[in-house]
């Protein structure tokens, strides 16, 4: 339960930042999906249960703050995580493949959730690349936090 509450608050902060703070600096042209980046980072750090909880909770929060159906984002991200779990062997094989795969995952997510700008490839691609950069940043933070806990 403690884990779920912690992930709820982390996802809440990330979603508020991604919806109201960061887009202003990019003139609403690019969209960094911090919630997706955090969920992917958890998954890459082999914390699958936490990744699935984050996908569910964060997705619900993202949808509740918008106008669409509640549960769409959770459904899409959870489905993507399930696909990633099944294709893990290929996904972890090498770096370029991992990056390409992650980009594809982000693109599918953005294309599904952002109907009005689905074909604005340049904006979506840059948004995906920035989300990818945040994924590796979060992954680095998560690995540091867990390593410190292990040694203390």
């Amino acid at each position: 339960m403690k884990k779920v509450v912690t992930l709820f608050f982390i996802d809440l902060i990330l979603i508020l930042l991604q919806k109201s703070f960061f887009p202003v600096f990019f003139d609403y042209r690019y969209y960094i999906d911090l919630y997706l980046a955090f969920t992917m980072a958890l998954f890459l750090e082999e914390k699958e249960t936490e990744a699935f909880v984050s996908a569910l909770v964060g997705g619900l929060l993202a949808d509740v703050l918008g106008m669409g159906l509640v549960g769409v984002s959770s459904f899409v991200v959870t489905s993507l995580l399930l696909v990633l779990r099944f294709t893990k062997r290929f996904f972890y094989r090498n770096w370029p493949l991992r990056v390409a795969f992650a980009l594809l995952v982000f693109y599918i997510y953005v294309a599904i959730t952002n109907v009005e700008n689905r074909w604005n490839v340049r904006h979506i691609l840059i948004s995906c690349l920035m989300t990818l950069a945040f994924t590796f940043f979060f992954r680095f933070l998560i690995s540091r936090i867990f390593n410190e806990k292990r040694f203390s």
Binding site: A55, L56, L61, V64, L65, S74, T78, S79, L82
Partner: peptide, 27 residues
């Protein structure tokens, strides 16, 4: 798999327009 089922449950609730109060409270 249980997470996916939960998502589907929420989607169903949303289709039946039962998530309105939840949205109202959060917003």
């Amino acid at each position: 798999m249980k997470y996916l089922l939960l998502c589907i449950l929420f989607l169903l609730l949303s289709f039946l327009k039962l998530t309105g109060p939840l949205r109202m409270v959060f917003q």
